[in-house]
Design a protein around this nucleic acid. Sequence first.
DNA 1: TCAAAAGTGTTCCGAATACACCCATGC
DNA 2: GCATGGGTGTATTCGGAACACTTTTGA
Lengths: 241, 241
Amino acid sequence: MNTPSHFFLSENNIPFRDYLKFGLSVDCVVFGYNEGKVQVLLIERNAEPFKGSWALPGELVPMNANLEDSANDVLKNLTGLSNIFMEQFFTFGSVDRHPAGRVATVGYYSLVGSNNYRPIASSWAKSIRWFDIDDLPALAFDHKRILQKGINTLKRRVRYRPVGFELLSKKFTLSELQDLYEALLDSKFDKPNFRKKILSMDLLIQLDELQENVSHRPAKLFKFDENRYRLLREDGFVFDI
Amino acid sequence: MNTPSHFFLSENNIPFRDYLKFGLSVDCVVFGYNEGKVQVLLIERNAEPFKGSWALPGELVPMNANLEDSANDVLKNLTGLSNIFMEQFFTFGSVDRHPAGRVATVGYYSLVGSNNYRPIASSWAKSIRWFDIDDLPALAFDHKRILQKGINTLKRRVRYRPVGFELLSKKFTLSELQDLYEALLDSKFDKPNFRKKILSMDLLIQLDELQENVSHRPAKLFKFDENRYRLLREDGFVFDI
DNA sequence: TCAAAAGTGTTCCGAATACACCCATGC
DNA sequence: GCATGGGTGTATTCGGAACACTTTTGA
């Protein structure tokens, strides 16, 4: 910061430093999927403001941290996992959205496989739990709006990007995949047609494994072929369910 | 701000106020369309840092202004127009992206009809001009990355939302529309099929007007039917070109 | 043997493609 | 008349929708 301050006068002569009074936070909409229901992870705040309210997990971005690192931090603290799929979706910056100052927040959503999470309560969360996205509690701050926008974004993006696979375990059956898409897009698909369509994309690898302990014919397990997806995308392929 | 400060201690006991040192700016990727070319509006900076460099138009968000208002301000100063189509697309907040402090920037893209703009140079811009998106100059800050992300976002969104129409004048011919989509998606469409597809969506209103002063059969003019689009969307219709 | 869900094949229809053709205007 | 781009009709192909069917397991 050795640049002369006159370099940074704005048109109306407000000094640069007077613009540097924002807080910046990240808030994470963590999606899960269980028994046919799409869910989000919420925390019960253990600190003012809104102590005791349900809220999205998030944190103030430290002055020396990048946004993604900060969001990853939140997820790490929450689930114990790094390398979770995560994507920015919108930034909320209304003047009055935080009661104690001007804090803009960057919204991220992330998708955790249904077997991969183990929510961890910590000092900033009195408790923590999954909520079905069609049965949500009241939320602190403007988190209701953020969450709703996150849900809408996921539902839109899931049509054109293979993000859905992130919500399942690494290995999954075609019926599980179909159930997930039906939940996300709330619609029904014809089983034979769904299979044909998804398999014709050539994005799944069939494993030499079968479902176990089911009282019916065991289904074949598949995994998503990341490499092939990368290759196809370079050729202009557009995933479209 | 009369809330006791101990309400806002973070986990590691850094006081709340120490997080309030961010600057926040908005940067606008202003798209235009002319003679078959998609273009963006860039300014030549008249202030340090990067004085003399080309850059995206933008400004520091005043402490009492909302993000959208700030972005609209930029557009108003640039084009003299309010009510321009505008959408947020991504927020960039790397620690070192601004040489003089921690400034995160919210990226917006906007679409201006080819006859609707009149770029205005001002105190903060030495000059201002349109560049074809495949012939861009070097840019200040991390604006190259922001611009590229804006372009990618537009190219993706144009497939699933009728944003393209915003780039044309209110009245347009089907060939103009086709040329635009071909430029945006860089591909070619068959004329009869493009017409059939676009007209079958029932989103265009045919006007009682014809093209003028052309040395061939004059084309019919159309306009986009906003109301009908709203109605169709409520029924779950998804625009898809 | 029955229930339950996995998995396959076939027909039908509508939308996308390819392509040939006619129309209106300025010069 | 002819060049230019606007505008239309049709045959063909391909993918999606509908649906009937077989297979494999546990109980």
